[in-house]
């Protein structure tokens, strides 16, 4: 474990807590893409299959349980909670995320680290996570006024993988651990997809105005 990866995990945890806070505090999921939440639930379910088979550390197990349960709880909330579900922007959240699942799965079949069930599903989860934010970014562009908690949630969610890229660089130079090119490429693609958002997030912070993505 190094500082970059720990900071990345904490940033990821904060993003989840911010989303839970937003939904709990405002009893609303306006501005949140259910499709992105469903994609993330799928990412965690296919990535943490080893939750019960490979014990790495208490920390690793606890974090996996947190990410799986929180993502499923948020999807349930947005679909079934009587109050929250009414605020879901159903007609704005129209990204065809099934294509992202199909594309990632095909990519995983052709480019896994090893052609085993476990590795193919792991690669699938990595490829899918790289594009999982797309429905949320599209929704953000359509919903003009999005509350601050939502923009902070997206900022932290985007920052965590950028910190993981620093972690891979650090591990490359210190542990001679070349890492996995699947993680490197997907992590970079994932971070690049946020650059546009990061720019407008920084602008809105400097001008202390609400974040507005161009139409």
């Amino acid at each position: 474990m190094n500082i970059f990866r720990f900071a990345g995990d904490m940033t990821h945890l904060v993003s989840v807590l911010l989303l839970l806070l937003k939904i709990y505090a405002t009893k609303s999921c306006s501005g949140i893409s259910l499709k992105t939440q469903e994609l993330y639930a799928l990412v965690f379910l296919t990535r943490y299959l080893d939750l019960f088979t490979d014990f790495i550390s208490i920390y690793n197990t606890v974090m996996k349980v947190i990410f799986i349960t929180s993502s499923l709880a948020i999807v349930w909330c947005m679909r079934a909670h009587p109050t929250v579900r009414r605020s879901y922007d159903r007609d704005q959240d129209t990204f065809r995320h099934h294509f992202l699942v199909l594309l990632s799965f095909i990519m995983a079949l052709f480019f896994p680290d090893l052609f085993t069930t476990r590795e193919v599903l792991w690669a699938f989860s990595i490829y899918l996570e790289a594009v999982a934010i797309l429905p949320q970014l599209v929704l953000l562009q359509r919903c003009r006024n999005v509350d601050n908690l939502t923009t902070h949630y997206i900022f932290f969610l985007g920052s965590y993988r950028a910190l993981y890229v620093l972690n891979w660089i650090y591990r490359y130079f210190t542990e001679k651990h070349a890492g996995r090119w699947i993680s490197w490429i997907s992590g970079l693609v994932q971070t690049v997809l946020y650059l546009d958002f990061f720019y407008y997030y920084f602008i809105s912070w400097k001008s202390s105005e609400k974040l507005r993505l161009p139409a």
Binding site: R5, D9, H12, D50, N60, D113, T116, Y164, R180, S183
Partner: peptide, 10 residues
């Protein structure tokens, strides 16, 4: 990579 590297990251 022949061996399956450990998945020690989240």
């Amino acid at each position: 990579s022949g061996e399956a590297l450990p998945h020690d990251e989240l």
